[in-house]
Write a protein that binds this DNA or RNA. Structure first.
Lengths: 265, 265
DNA sequence: CGACACCTTGAAGAGGTTCAAGAAATGTGG
DNA sequence: CCACATTTCTTGAACCTCTTCAAGGTGTCG
């Protein structure tokens, strides 16, 4: 609490600098693409597809959309027609109630699928907002269902994606229901860096795409608490923080914070 | 805070009295059944099936299992093979971590499906515990996938069930992330009674199948806080409580507590 | 009836929030 | 390119909600 904060020098970008846009309502641009050449294929599609199957599955993705920072991919109440695979960029999904509550339900990055919330009632129940300029592949849900009746592996894949989301949310419930502020932020950072690492980025450095307020909303904390907890971690020498640049100095300490602390239940 | 508690007389059972079992590890019994005669059909299956389709879909349910109170239907780590449709009874699902954390992720009643968490990794990631003697229909997942390749309406139904679970969990995240104790308990009671009402039970009376501790775990509160909040509601004349018997006297007040209160973010 | 699980209530304390002010970064427009 | 406005972040102090610890009450079951 009394140590001078080490300055976080030499933090490298985790991706090309996002060109900034001034919240245009929505900005999309159609491009033809093919899953077969996509380097995110292992994240989006089932493994071990035959070449012919892959060609057919390419049919799923009609067009690719660009979404500028601050723009929404879809909004609560909008008609559901498609799932979206994120090619580049970073999103948040959030729900809002009439009485002004707002809850970030997740942060999504390249290779992840958004829109699953819309299936049950044919309308989206949350907003998906790009936190940096993004590109997504639009996959009409009719086509997905059609092709997954044909290809067992695709069918299974779709089921797994939905199940994974359910399990992920169980983890968030555990976090929100039983962890204290430090544990929540530690778990959050470890989760982010692990997912980034799986995409070829650093295991220890990350550039937060979201504000303290958005982190707080996701973690069930106020932005001041997020900020204070970051400062605590810095004082303890666990991370270096410079605004949105974060370097994890002591991963083990973070893991200890998440796991070791007793109490709870 | 100073009013005498009204006694909750005349609370009727919401279902036949559960015969109590003393936590046998697992107690199952196979019975042949058919969806076509099941009065929960509208909850489990898509609407508007033709008779022939219904006959085929009957094939999904191989056997019906009995699970005694306190027994588990499946456990974390167990191989995933099937989904379960609850015919009678009441379950909780919960996850536990090595460090002793424990989180109830949901309470499930007749007509609801459990086991979706197991799809993604072929192993269950939570425990499903019967809170009263229960009967479930075992539906091998292979058969479900097979038949939903054949019947579009079943395929869509499966997708909707999974999407519904995702949306439900978003709601829990909102609750855990942004509500205070009274709001959480009010939302919980309204949700329970609404689901019971959809099954033909009273709109205002319910018999809690879970302990204060389990409610607390689900709502991210300690059991003492749950108890105190119940007492507060009783003092305010909003509900009558006698152990696990609850009568909602003023539904509007509960709704106000959930919606109106500002604060939050 | 005694043991046990569950529930209630009180008092003290901790963790997180609220309110407020100021600093740092970012974006805007001349 | 610099000055100004805006957004975002940090930090302090007071407050509040919920937790913790403790004790006693209620109900149930063998």
């Amino acid at each position: 609490m009394f140590d001078a904060k080490p300055s976080a020098r030499g933090l490298s970008r985790q991706a090309e600098a996002a060109s900034d846009a001034k919240m245009p309502p929505i900005n999309t641009q159609a491009i033809k693409v093919a899953c077969s050449n996509c380097n995110l294929r292992e994240l989006c599609l089932p493994l071990g597809l035959k070449a012919e199957e892959l060609d057919r599955i390419d049919e799923i993705v009609g067009i690719r959309l660009k979404v500028r920072r601050g723009a929404t991919l879809f909004n609560n109440g909008e008609k559901f027609t498609a799932l979206y695979a994120i090619r580049t960029g970073f999103f948040k999904t959030c729900i809002a109630t009439e009485d002004g509550r707002d809850q970030v339900t997740g942060f999504q990055m390249a290779g992840e699928i958004i829109g699953l919330d819309g299936i049950v009632n044919d309308h989206h129940t949350c907003n998906a907002v790009a936190l940096e300029d993004a590109e997504v592949c639009l996959m009409p849900f009719d086509r997905i269902e059609e092709l997954s009746r044909e290809f067992t592996s695709l069918q299974r894949h779709v089921h797994k994606i939905m199940s994974r989301e359910i399990v992920r949310e169980h983890g968030v419930m555990l976090l929100l229901g039983s962890m204290r502020a430090e544990e929540r932020l530690a778990a959050f950072l470890l989760n982010l860096v692990q997912r980034l690492h799986a995409r070829g980025f650093s295991q220890s450095e990350l550039l937060l795409r979201m504000t303290r307020e958005e982190i707080g909303s996701y973690l069930g904390l106020k932005l001041e608490t997020v900020s204070r907890t970051f400062s605590k971690f810095v004082d303890d020498g666990i991370v270096e923080v410079q605004q949105r640049h974060v370097r994890i100095v002591n991963t083990g300490a973070l893991k200890l914070i998440v796991n070791n602390q007793q109490s709870c239940q």
